[in-house]
């Protein structure tokens, strides 16, 4: 349903007085390579998870998928159309069909709009003129997002709602246009633990019911493992491993995937505490990416080949891809 092919995005580095001076001497523009040639596809009714540290390009990928950034290379295919070439009615159609749920449910709601008005806005923007028709759609969306009882919520302002309720308003706003692509960017990380599962359940149910292709972005592997059908691991703007979530969590192949999983604290209670495995170092500078594998500086098992050539994704088994020189040979 949605397909990403060799997608790239780089940003020009903001020039300060001094850096402008030095770049004059070097005559080379500095660019942050946020997303560096990634490919994947999400089918209808499927949730794909994207994991990685902050700055790995997760959110940039989301913005590219929504058409809010123009890709520097590669393309995003939506129902077979390249979204960066869309214009007029086609663009309008795409905008309606690709929606987003944010991390912070308070910041993502207009404080001056009531719940009803918030969910109505996308319909007005997309020229649904008849009031009764709008009302019907809003009620249906609120029901799906479990904002019950409907009447109690309609006239409330965001500051009168709890975090979980706000996030359900965001979900209702996102699904009122019956999207085909839904992106959830850390949608539960700011919510209290006791209500997180409820929000995840709604996202899961709606994905199946409305046959959406959902992209769930998070750095929490245990969360991704529990809701996603497949998971892609991103490091320094590249996908280093991608596959069915059971495969990724239970038999990770890339050393970085392993590091991400081993770093997750487990709620198991014992007297003698085990030390968590935490790899040292930090993600590389996206302006000057190291040659070869971008993970090699933090990798315990780096060999000579890792320094010279950049590993490509290859299929280890059905639907499980990894980009590492150490795997498979």
């Amino acid at each position: 349903m949605i397909e990403v092919k060799d997608l790239q995005k780089s940003f020009a580095v903001k020039e300060t007085f001094f850096s402008a001076f030095t770049s004059l001497l070097k005559k080379k523009e500095k660019r942050i390579r946020a997303v560096n040639g990634i490919s994947f596809s999400i089918h209808a009714g499927e949730i794909m998870g994207v994991a990685g540290e902050s700055g790995c390009g997760k959110t940039t990928t989301a913005m590219l998928l929504l058409g809010l950034y123009r890709p520097s290379g590669g393309k995003v295919l939506f129902e077979g159309m390249d979204i960066s070439s869309l214009k007029g009615t086609e663009l309008r159609y795409f905008r309606r069909k690709a929606q987003l749920i944010f991390q912070d449910p308070y910041e993502s709601l207009n404080p001056r709009f009531t719940v009803y008005r918030t969910i109505e806005e996308p319909l007005i923007v997309n020229r649904l003129r008849r009031k009764s028709e709008r009302r019907e759609k809003i009620m249906k969306a609120m029901e799906k997002a479990k904002l019950m009882p409907l009447e109690a919520f309609c006239d409330k302002y965001p500051h009168e709602l709890s975090g979980g309720e706000r996030q359900r308003v965001c979900i209702a706003r996102a699904i009122v246009l019956e999207p085909v692509l839904l992106i959830a960017d850390e949608a539960t990380s700011m919510l209290d633990v006791s209500i997180r599962a409820g929000i995840l359940e709604i996202i899961k149910e709606l994905t199946e019911e409305m046959k959406m292709a959902t992209l769930y972005i998070s750095h929490d592997m245990s969360l991704l493992g529990s809701i996603c059908d497949k998971i892609g691991i991103m490091y320094a703007g590249e996908i280093v491993e991608i596959g069915r979530s059971e495969d990724i969590i239970q038999s990770p192949l890339h050393p970085y995937t392993r590091a991400l999983i081993e770093a997750v604290p487990v709620p198991e209670f014992r007297r003698a505490k085990l030390k968590l495995k935490a790899i040292a170092g930090e993600p590389p500078d996206l302006v000057n990416l190291p040659r070869g594998c971008s993970f090699r500086l933090r990798c315990e098992r780096a060999i000579k080949a890792c320094r010279t050539s950049r590993p490509k994704l290859f299929e280890v088994k059905q639907g499980h891809f990894v980009a590492c020189h150490q795997v498979g040979d």
Partner: peptide
């Protein structure tokens, strides 16, 4: 992030 978190926990 998870990895930094693990380092601080340790």
């Amino acid at each position: 992030d998870v990895i930094m978190q693990a380092q601080i926990i340790n």
